[in-house]
Each structure stands twice: as structure tokens, then as C-alpha cells.
Design a binder for these strands. Structure first.
Lengths: 240, 240
DNA sequence: ACAACACTTCGTTGGAGATCGAAGTATGAA
DNA sequence: TTCATACTTCGATCTCCAACGAAGTGTTGT
């Protein structure tokens, strides 16, 4: 039983890796890595293959639980199945980058500083926000330790509500409320789940950050710089 | 420049994924995931291919910096290039396991509890040891924050030396002294690097844990249970 | 009802790469 | 020296799967 389950697990793992390791599929996945959903036609364009070929690729990605699809009228919206997929993608790219580009010192600065991971904020900005939220006791590891899930404290709920985040609404969402999402480049956690998504949405709405076209990079605006300092005590130095 | 580097990075990442996503190569990598080195012939056996085929696979893995080889006489010892490779392997297997086996609730218990990751202790045991070492102020994040690297405190050096770990020797080793190695199953860090390896070696020597044949699982012995409690304050309950 | 669009399914083709055996190099052992 | 072992390189198959176009299903708009 031990060996056979091991075999099966290795098999499934290998299949996942193979699914990622094909140019057209990889392009699609990287395109979805910012957490936004795209139609099949949009993915046809980034994959640079015919619609029929793209369709085959997408159904394979779906079969392997790497993407999830929601049908809306005559459009099919594809998105990553979970933030974990984005994390693994990032892990692989760290491995890929280490060989020759150690000189370049990790990711490009604008990507290190702030970027989206799935639908929340990652990079040094994301990690800093996570750390401040923890330090200020706005969020705390949930009762069941070791599973990386967070709860919002009473103090945190008050403060976040004041910022315009409806904590109660978030709690009733079907997805995990908040969890520590591992960031490969930083080797630290940032806030994922419904709360993480709400924070990114807030930051985009208030124009604290803006998405860079066709990239996961986030630009922190001048007002955003002030806002992160005022609300969270996160000071984005010019360093790095 | 932005787009082109993005493309190149995606290309490299995709190549890594493809390298893992081939049955024979995946079997080799999983075999090496416990951090021990094996000869090419041993890997021929686990890959279940001819020597010539295995040779081609190994040179590809080497070209992609997934494994490193050290030639010793007429033997070639292959080992994973870094703990990061093992981590990515684990990340992929978490993705693979999530689809159908959510019912089985993550990894098998004996793997969750204690296992080797590369050459250090992972699983709940590894995470607990990491947390206790931090809580007792034996290790602390190094001056350059956010890079996941740890230093040993004076207090920690004394205590670890008393346990038979030669801290000074570890410091002169070419590899990183200690860092937080991300554990996908636990979503928490355990101690990696030279210190992590030394801890596993110590635990094996003193028979606190024993390796399970052909698996990364570690069996905690009765005396190990007592030792982890006495030396580190890690109490391995019967729970889970 | 009909046309335009968004995708998928099917059947065929083509090419990359996994495989092997045979032959070659290097090390160690008798 | 000679044989055996450990591993690689080379050249030739062969298998798998990505690719496409053509035809199908389903949805929206007019």
C-alpha cells in the first residue's frame, strides 16, 4: 500500500509538471497567474495556436485541476484553480532563474517590490503588509495551529471596516477567509484568500497601486506610498 | 526589454517543468528528493530504462540545474542541486494531490508527521523544531531581513554545541548556514541549510528518528520522542 | 428565422524526443 | 596486462502528442 500510493502520487505529480511544461499551456498559465479570468479566445491569442488546439490544451489543464472554467453565455472564462497554482508557477520560475541569473539578483526590482499573485498582493509590499497586519494584531493564526489559516481580531475587524472592507461579507464568502500564501521570491508569507483579494481590490480602487499592462507587476502610486504608511505603517523606502 | 525578459523567464520555467514532467526523470528526481546522492546505476534501476537512456536524462537534468554530479572514481554521484528543487517537487505533488484526495486530508499521516526534505527534517516535526528554536531564541533572522536566512544566537550556539553540533564547523561550510525552508504540506518553514542537515544527522545518529526504506518518511523512536521533548520542548502528541 | 460568434470534437499529419543496442572511454581489480 | 565495471556517445527507430482544418453544438443579436 505504501509503495503503490507513492507510485500513484508520483504519477499524478509528473502529469501536472508535464501539463505545465508545454509552451502553449505554459503561456496560458502565466497569463492567468495574476488571478484574473480570461475567455478561451483571449488565451488563444497568448498561446499563439489555433482555437482547436487551444481548446484541447484548456481541457487538459482543466482535467488536471490547474484551471477552473465558468461558462457565461457564449463565453468561457478560465482562471487558475487556486493560488497554489500561481505559487508553484513562481516556484518553478525561481528554479529556472537561479542557474544563470544569480548575478541579476532574483527577480527584476519592479517585480520584487510589488506584484499580484493570483488575486492578492505579493512581493515585498505584500510581505510587509502581512507582517504589519500580524504585528498590529489585526490578524492572528486561527485556533487550529499549523494550517496557515488566519482569523481577523476584533481590533482588526474594526480597523479594516473603517478602511471600507466589509469583513462580515468576506466571512460568508465561499473561499477561505485568509491564509498565509507562500511567496517563493521572498520566501515569506503574504495575505491570501478573501481578505487578500479585498485588500488588492481596495488598493486598486483607491489608486494606491495600478496594474502594469500585461504583467503581474504593480505600480505603487505616490498617494499609495503615503496610504500604506498611514494605514499599515508600511514604509516603502527607496532602497532596492 | 520588459516583455522579452518575461518571455525568456517563461521559457526557462517551462523547460524546467518539462524536465520534471517525464516519467523516467520524475522517478529519478523523486528518488533523490530525500537529499541523498545516488550513482547513475542506482538511478537506472529506479527509472526503469536502459543505461544509455538514463544517461541522456541525467545530462538533461544537469543542464537544467536540477541535479548536481560529483565524480568519484568510476562512480558518478547525482544529488539534487538544492533544497529548492525538493520544495518545488513537493509543491507540485500538493497540487497533484488536491484534486481527488482532499478526502484523504493531505499527506499520509506518517509523512505529515515527520519526513526528510532534501537533507533536513520536514513535516510537523520539522516545523515544530523550527518554531521552538526560534521561540527559545537559539536562532534568529539574520540582519538582512526578508531573505529567510538565520543566524545562531550566542545562547543557541552554546546549547547546540552541548548537543554535539559543531557550530563553528558549520559556519565554515560552503553552503548556507541556516534558512527557513518552505514546507508545502505544512505551509510553514523548517530549518534548512547546514544547521538543518546537522540536526537530521544528529537525530539519525542518536536514533531519535530512523529512515523508512525507500521513502522520505522518518520514524520517531520512543527515545526520540523523549529527546525532542527534553532538548527542544517539542511534544509529539498522539493526536494526528 | 437567420446570421454571426464562441467554442468544441474529430480525423489526419508531422515532428520532437524517448528508447535502445552497439561501440567507445575511463577507472579499478586480478 | 587483461578483464570487468561504470558510464557516455552515437545512430537508428518508434511512439506519442501537438497542430491544424473541417464540421459540429450552442448562444446572442437582429
Amino acid at each position: 500500500m505504501n509503495v503503490s500510493t507513492n507510485m500513484a502520487a508520483e504519477d499524478a505529480t509528473l502529469t501536472i509538471a508535464a501539463a505545465i511544461g508545454e509552451p502553449a499551456r505554459a503561456r496560458m498559465l502565466f497569463c492567468l497567474a495574476d488571478g484574473r479570468a480570461r475567455t478561451a479566445t483571449e488565451l488563444v491569442l497568448v498561446a499563439e495556436v489555433s482555437p482547436s488546439t487551444a481548446s484541447a490544451h484548456l481541457s487538459r489543464l482543466k482535467a488536471n485541476d490547474l484551471v477552473r472554467v465558468v461558462i457565461q453565455g457564449k463565453h468561457r472564462y478560465y482562471r487558475l484553480e487556486s493560488p497554489d497554482v500561481a505559487s508553484v508557477l513562481e516556484g518553478l520560475s525561481v528554479l529556472a532563474g537561479r542557474g544563470r541569473a544569480t548575478v541579476a539578483s532574483g527577480a527584476p526590482d519592479h517585480l520584487r517590490a510589488a506584484r499580484s499573485c493570483y488575486d492578492h498582493i505579493a512581493g515585498t509590499l505584500g510581505v510587509s503588509v502581512h507582517d504589519r497586519l500580524t504585528a498590529m494584531d489585526w490578524i492572528a493564526p486561527s485556533s487550529r495551529a499549523n494550517d496557515g489559516v488566519y482569523d481577523v481580531t476584533a481590533k482588526g475587524a474594526k480597523a479594516l471596516n473603517a478602511l471600507g472592507i466589509d469583513i462580515d461579507a468576506l466571512r460568508t464568502a465561499r473561499r477561505r477567509f485568509a491564509f498565509g500564501c507562500l511567496d517563493w521570491t521572498e520566501r515569506r508569507a503574504h495575505v491570501g484568500g478573501a481578505l487578500g483579494a479585498a485588500l488588492l481590490t481596495l488598493a486598486l480602487e483607491r489608486k494606491w497601486v495600478s496594474r502594469e499592462h500585461g504583467s503581474r507587476a504593480l505600480q505603487v502610486t505616490a498617494s499609495g506610498r503615503r496610504a500604506f504608511a498611514a494605514h499599515f505603517g508600511v514604509h516603502l523606502g527607496v532602497r532596492l
